[in-house]
Amino acid sequence: MKVFRFGRTAAVLSVAALSLAACGSDNATDAAGTETSASASTVSGTLSGVGASSQAAAMDAWIAGFNAANPGASIQYSPDGSGAGREALLAGGAQFAGSDAYLKDEETAASQEVCGPDGAFNVPAYISPIAIAFNLEGIKELNLDAATIAGIFRGEISTWNDAAIAGQNEGVKLPATPITVVHRADDSGTTTNFTDYLAAAAPEVWTTEADGEWPAELDGQENAQGTSGVVSAASATEGAITYADASAVGSMGKVSVKVGDEYVAYTSEAAAKAVEASTPVTGEGRPDADMAMDLARDTTESGAYPVVLVSYHIYCTTYQDQETVDLVKAFGEYVVSDEGQAAASDAAGNAPLSANLQEQAVQALRSIKAAS
């Protein structure tokens, strides 16, 4: 049984023993604690990935950092959405996927066709809050509980001065502007995480199961492709509301979510605190290396922001040749290293993985092997 141990952040604990010998700073420290030069890298080749558009900013930073240390290697990533990434991996069209939702049991089973008898597995790449963002002139912050958020996105609360909103925002002059919901048009891991929060925290209002595709019965709402698409559409529409990776919402207004008796604004620290209460996903056929996490959406922990996602990289347990295995391991370990996590945080504002998660991710990546 896999056990995840949370609580200590990468900013507090040293994980020098996990740094790459081949990737990172000019004086990286390898697993034995000795210093090596980044120029000593021996990995080469091209690694192709497809997946979450929410990872775009972090991925640009990872690719730049990794390529600088590994001039013989090339990482390519197409931010077509989480669902597209998982589909590409399962079809053999990509060597890894970026996804804001982990592989379902049936997807894990299907992955055995291209990834060998143990299939594919999920490794956390970063933690990020999902912002509930709105466009109202002169208003930058609102407090909302889960039931009100669910009512808005179901279309049951249709104007901004509705009593359910006004009652939680005393002193805020709310207009009678109609609410325009903007949701993802594509199969999205962000949608999976957002609807999972609504279903867990407001089950009496959000009666639809969590899914990567927006509920078909909620027709008549606006939609757009990808993270940038929904943010652009909402930013251009007075009275609009949407959900997106917090790194992408810019100057739009943001919702503080009620948790227990307080309203919690999204921050990387608040998102990380919510993840600390997570438990491992279990299921028949999941590889031992799998690190998928079941997030505690209905937490009442003070200071935790439960509208959060763990963004994963999904790798095969087996690749056809050792060169690919070496490249996958090197890139994967760079992503979860201190340097990789810092690069992503600077670019996307996400929360770094805890030291314990970093350690488990490295162990998982090192289990990848070449086909015999």
Results as ranks from 00 to 15, higher is better:
Met1Thr: 14
Val3Ile: 14
Phe4Leu: 12
Phe4Val: 09
Gly7Ile: 11
Arg8Cys: 11
Arg8Glu: 15
Thr9His: 12
Ala10Asn: 12
Ala16Cys: 08
Asn27Tyr: 14
Thr29Trp: 07
Asp30Lys: 07
Ala31Lys: 11
Ala32Met: 12
Thr34Ala: 14
Glu35Cys: 09
Glu35Asn: 12
Thr36Glu: 11
Ser37Gly: 15
Ala38Ile: 03
Thr42Val: 10
Leu47Thr: 06
Ser54Val: 15
Ala58Asn: 12
Met59Thr: 15
Ala61Trp: 10
Ala61His: 07
Trp62Val: 09
Asn67Thr: 15
Ala68Val: 13
Ser74Phe: 09
Tyr77Cys: 07
Ser78His: 07
Ser82Pro: 00
Ser82Tyr: 00
Gly85Ser: 07
Arg86Tyr: 01
Glu87Asn: 11
Ala91Gly: 10
Gly93Glu: 14
Gln95Ala: 13
Gly98Met: 14
Asp100Phe: 06
Tyr102Cys: 08
Tyr102Glu: 11
Leu103Trp: 02
Asp105His: 13
Glu106Ser: 15
Glu107Phe: 11
Ala109Glu: 11
Ser111Val: 03
Cys115Ala: 03
Gly116Trp: 02
Gly119Met: 06
Phe121Val: 03
Tyr126Glu: 13
Tyr126Leu: 15
Tyr126Asp: 12
Ser128Gly: 07
Ile132Tyr: 03
Glu137Ser: 12
Glu137His: 07
Glu137Tyr: 05
Glu141Phe: 11
Leu142Pro: 05
Leu142Val: 07
Asn143His: 09
Leu144Arg: 04
Asp145Leu: 05
Ala147Tyr: 10
Thr148Cys: 00
Ala150Thr: 02
Gly155Asn: 12
Ser158Trp: 09
Asn161Asp: 15
Gly167Met: 06
Asn169Ile: 03
Asn169Cys: 06
Pro175Val: 02
Ile179Phe: 08
Asp187Ile: 08
Ser188Glu: 01
Ser188Phe: 00
Thr191Ala: 09
Thr191Ser: 14
Thr191Arg: 01
Thr192Tyr: 14
Thr192Arg: 13
Asn193Arg: 12
Tyr197His: 09
Ala201Gly: 00
Ala201Tyr: 03
Glu204Gly: 12
Val205Ser: 00
Trp206Ala: 01
Glu209Lys: 14
Asp211Val: 06
Asp211Asn: 15
Gly212Gln: 08
Gly220Ile: 13
Ala224Asn: 05
Val230Arg: 01
Ala234Arg: 00
Ala240Asn: 04
Ala246Pro: 04
Ala246Glu: 09
Ser247Leu: 10
Met252Trp: 00
Lys254Thr: 13
Lys254Met: 10
Val257Asn: 02
Lys258Ile: 03
Val259Glu: 02
Asp261Trp: 05
Glu262Ala: 14
Tyr263His: 12
Ala272Glu: 12
Glu276Asn: 15
Thr279Phe: 04
Pro280Arg: 02
Thr282Asp: 06
Gly285Lys: 06
Asp290Leu: 00
Met291Ser: 08
Met291Glu: 09
Arg297Thr: 08
Asp298Arg: 08
Glu301Ala: 14
Ser302Val: 10
Gly303Arg: 04
Ala304Tyr: 02
Pro306Ile: 09
Val307Asn: 07
His313Met: 13
Cys316Pro: 03
Thr318Pro: 04
Gln320Thr: 12
Glu323Trp: 01
Asp326Phe: 01
Asp338His: 11
Ala347Asn: 03
Pro352Lys: 05
Glu359Met: 10
Ala361Ile: 00
Leu365His: 02
Ile368Asn: 05
Ala370Asn: 07
Ala371Lys: 08
Ser372Leu: 07
